[in-house]
Every structure is written in structure tokens, then in C-alpha cells.
Amino acid sequence: MTMLDVQDIHVHYGAIHALKGVSLKVEAGTIVTLIGANGAGKSTTLRALSGLLPLSTGAIDFIGQSIGGRPVHKIVRDGLCHCPEGRKVFPQLTVKANLELGAYIRHDKTGIKSDLEQIYQLFPRLKERLSQAAGTLSGGEQQMLAIGRSLMGRPRLLMLDEPSLGIAPLLVQEIFRTIKKINAEQKMTILLVEQNAHMALKIADHGYVLETGKVVLSGKASDLAADPRIKAAYLGH
């Protein structure tokens, strides 16, 4: 089943034409990655999908419903969750309060409680820091919190924006392993934006390569990883 179907979306920042017709599909249960250089439009794509940026033209279908132009808070309720670039945890709130805000749209108290336990299992470091202000966590821990917070909303599709950005290499490994685990164990569909193409293609099923606001290449992640053009441009071979 196609969960997310993005058709030829254009986005402008004032006079800058940031997205020049991006189309992509995300099948249920898969990890799809969007790779590309800085400024290629990866984050812009996610911000447009979650409604933070208005579309100039184009269409977005999510689980058979058109969500282009819907307000952000309604798109979240539709089940499309965006874990933003730079983590964006609430710095003065505790780790626990951050996680609870992730479940803001839910009302099933017992479900929220059991999901909290699940997050603690996924990220044991968070459990040790529950009553600490989120701003005092390390970058890697904040990233774990941001992912955990997103999961608390029980999304149908999780969009992760640069989870490896500014994080110690050892933690990057751990975070990517966890992303794969969330996909495998919870059957979570994931759209992953990454500059670290090597890591992203390793865990993804499918990939899209973005250059200056356009998709220039797409295919199975393993094929992309083997593609000499990708190797030269993004994998540093």
C-alpha cells in the first residue's frame, strides 16, 4: 500500500524557488530515505509535508487523503509525524514532560503509559534522565528524546530530519540501529532525511537523491549505494 504519495510539489521561500517539483512515494512498512547535499531541499520537503511550509503547487496524498494545505496540527492527527532537524526538544521542560507532549493528541491514558515504558526500553538513557530538563541533555540524548517524543504520538508515518546531525559517531550508530529496530519491530513506516548517505542507504529500502530542489535519482537503496554516481558524489569513494 502506498502510504504517502507526493506529486510534483513546489515550495517558495519568498523569491527563492526551493522545491522545483518533488515527487516521491513511501510504501507502508518501509524505510525511505531522502539524501542529498546541504541546501538540496531535503528539510524543505519534510517541512512542506508536515504543513510547516505552504505549497506553491503540487499534491500530497497521505493514506488516501489529500493533506496539502491542511494545518500542521491536523496533519499530525492524521498520523504523519515530523521529527524536526536540530531535535527541537522543549529545553526547559523535563524529559518526561517532553515525552508526554508527544502524546498530546492522544487520550488513552493506559496506552500512553505502556508506550512510555516502550520508549524507556528503546532508549534506556532517557529513563535515567526523566526529571532532567531536556536542554541539559547531550545532542545524542536529545535526538533520542526527539524520536521518542515523536513515537509517543503513535504516528502512521514517522519523518526523521537529519537524526545524525551534530552527534558523536558512536551514538550515530546506536540511533540508526534503533531506527531500524523501530521499523522492524513496530512496523513503523519511516521517511528519513539524511546527509549521512552511507548510513541512511544501509538501513533504507528505497532512496531518493535530491539536488537543488529536484529529485535527480531514485531506486532501491542497495542499488543507489552501488551506483558509481552516488558513490562519487555522496559516499566519498
Binding site: 496540527h73 499530525v76 527541537k88 507532549l101
Partner: peptide, 24 residues
């Protein structure tokens, strides 16, 4: 209260609050 939590979230990061499903 829940609206209070939404207020605190909104005051710290309005975009992140919207991404939590809060009608800011």
C-alpha cells in the same frame, strides 16, 4: 492542565509545539 502544557510548549518552540499536534 493539558492546555497549560500546550502553553509552555508553545512558548519554548512554537513550530515544535505545532508538530506535537498543538493548535498554537
Amino acid at each position: 492542565t493539558k492546555i497549560g502544557a500546550a502553553m509552555r510548549a508553545t512558548s519554548q518552540d512554537i513550530d515544535a509545539a505545532r508538530l506535537m499536534g498543538i493548535n498554537t
